Amino acid sequence: MPGRPDDPDPVSEALFALHRGLPRQGPGSDATTRRLLELAGPLRTSAANADAARAAGYWVDAHWPLPESDWWNEYYTPLSERIARADPADPAHPGMGQALAVARAEITLRRHHGSDYDYAGYVLYPAPISSATVSGTTSYVGAGTGTGTTDAETRTPRRTPTGAPVPGATARLVGTTAATHPHLLSNRKTMTTSWTTRPETAADVAALHEINTAAFPTDLEAGIVDALRADRAAWIDGLSLLAEAPDGTPVAHALLTRCHVDGEPALTLGPCAVLPSAQRTGAGSAAIRAGLDAARARGEGLVLVLGHPEYYPRFGFTPASRFGIRAPFDVPDEAMMALALDPAHPIPTGTIQYPAAFGV
């Protein structure tokens, strides 16, 4: 395996040096990572992981996806800062130039597809039952408890070791039956919807106005959206994105418009709004990700947002002050954030100039 003492690989060694000491790394982590990579082999789906656990004689009681923001806050943001400081010609690590390219590609891939490939935890229990496979479907038969097929997936509140629910967290139950695990299935909830996103059309204007009116205490934000739409210098076709329910009803909206940083073009994200009935379902995140993807496809380099510092880092945003960018008004440093869509794109510094619709 590349990177082992008996088969040194300068690129792998440079990658380990680049990552060493990050918040998710610890003493001895290089050796641990090498061993885990060797054992893991190709990435598997959640279903394949569950099947492997069952084959080893375990019930898979819960599958707990980790939040994407955890990886940006704790890992990718510090890694990005380290990449910016690294020397591609580091004589101590002859593979550093290639390692930096690989790390940049990893960050770009994570931005594009981070929500497609999740890190997760599984809760396993030794199975007190026998199993048999019939026509490719595994069934489990318990003594006097009846039968149940695998891959029944539901969602239930995650609980702490004391049994208390963790706010906002969910766990997916895999291969669980009411006969053997009634305490888990009694809390069944509907699985999260996969949202469809698309750019707004003229037919969506009234619905988007209603979404922004319903999402905020007043119609101020709805008025800002309407004013931005009428501002030819600020509005960019294709950067007003919505998420729609399975029946085609728009339920969430994310808007990116033109702003400037000391005269250089950038984008500002917002207003962003979700119908109250669709909040905390992922609809808003889906619309925002679609908007960022559309901006990236256009070749835009920088997006700015003024918002909740515990929410926007999941998309890769970090404090704008780290880029030498500041708002034209007093605002907590952590609330004014920036996202470099392309690490190779020059990032301007200075004061943000917003469209007139924002009134600043």
Rank of each mutant, 00 (worst) to 15 (best):
Arg4Val: 10
Pro5Ala: 11
Pro10Ile: 03
Ala14Glu: 08
Leu15Pro: 02
Arg20Trp: 14
Arg20Val: 04
Pro23Tyr: 09
Pro27His: 05
Thr33Ala: 13
Thr33Val: 08
Arg35Met: 15
Gly41His: 09
Arg44Tyr: 06
Thr45Arg: 10
Ser46Asn: 10
Ala47Asn: 05
Asn49Trp: 12
Asp51Ala: 14
Asp51Lys: 12
Ala55Val: 00
Ala56Tyr: 02
Ala62Gly: 08
Pro67Asp: 10
Trp71Tyr: 12
Glu74Ile: 03
Thr77Arg: 13
Ala84Trp: 06
Arg85Phe: 06
Pro88Cys: 06
Pro91Asn: 08
His93Arg: 15
Pro94Ile: 01
Ala99Gly: 04
Leu100Asn: 09
Ala101Asp: 15
Ala103Phe: 05
Ile107Pro: 09
Leu109Thr: 10
Leu109Phe: 10
Arg110Gln: 12
His112Val: 07
His113Pro: 03
Ala127Val: 06
Pro128Trp: 00
Ala132Trp: 08
Ala143Arg: 15
Gly148Met: 01
Thr150Arg: 07
Ala152Val: 05
Ala152Arg: 03
Ala152Cys: 05
Glu153Asn: 09
Thr154Ser: 04
Thr156Ile: 12
Arg158His: 07
Thr160Gln: 13
Pro161Asn: 07
Pro161Phe: 09
Val166Cys: 00
Gly168Pro: 07
Ala169Cys: 10
Thr170Gly: 13
Thr170Arg: 15
Arg172Trp: 11
Leu173Asp: 00
Val174Ala: 01
Thr176Glu: 02
Ala179Gly: 11
Leu185Phe: 00
Lys189Asp: 10
Met191His: 08
Met191Ser: 15
Asp204Arg: 13
Asp204Trp: 11
Leu208Lys: 01
Thr213Ser: 15
Thr213His: 10
Ala214Glu: 15
Ala214Tyr: 06
Pro217Val: 12
Glu221Asn: 11
Val225Asp: 09
Asp226Ala: 13
Asp226Phe: 02
Arg232Ala: 12
Ile236Trp: 01
Gly238Gln: 12
Gly238Val: 12
Ser240Val: 11
Ser240Gln: 13
Gly248Lys: 07
Val251Arg: 01
Arg258Ser: 07
Cys259Lys: 01
Gly263Cys: 04
Pro265Lys: 01
Pro265Trp: 00
Pro265Cys: 02
Leu267Phe: 03
Leu269Glu: 00
Pro271Thr: 05
Ala273Trp: 05
Val274Cys: 12
Ser277Gln: 15
Thr281Ala: 13
Gly284Leu: 07
Gly284Asn: 02
Ser285Ile: 04
Ser285Val: 05
Ala290Trp: 06
Arg296Gln: 11
Arg296His: 08
Glu300Ala: 10
Gly301Met: 02
Val303Ala: 08
His308Leu: 08
His308Pro: 00
Pro313Ser: 07
Arg326Asp: 08
Phe329Trp: 00
Phe329Cys: 00
Pro332Lys: 11
Pro332Met: 08
Asp333Lys: 10
Ala335Gly: 06
Met336Glu: 05
Met337Trp: 07
Ala338Thr: 00
Ala338Gln: 00
Asp342Leu: 03
Thr351Ala: 12
Gln353Gly: 10
Gln353Asp: 12
Pro355Glu: 02
Pro355Met: 03
Ala356Thr: 09
Ala356Arg: 15
Gly359Met: 00
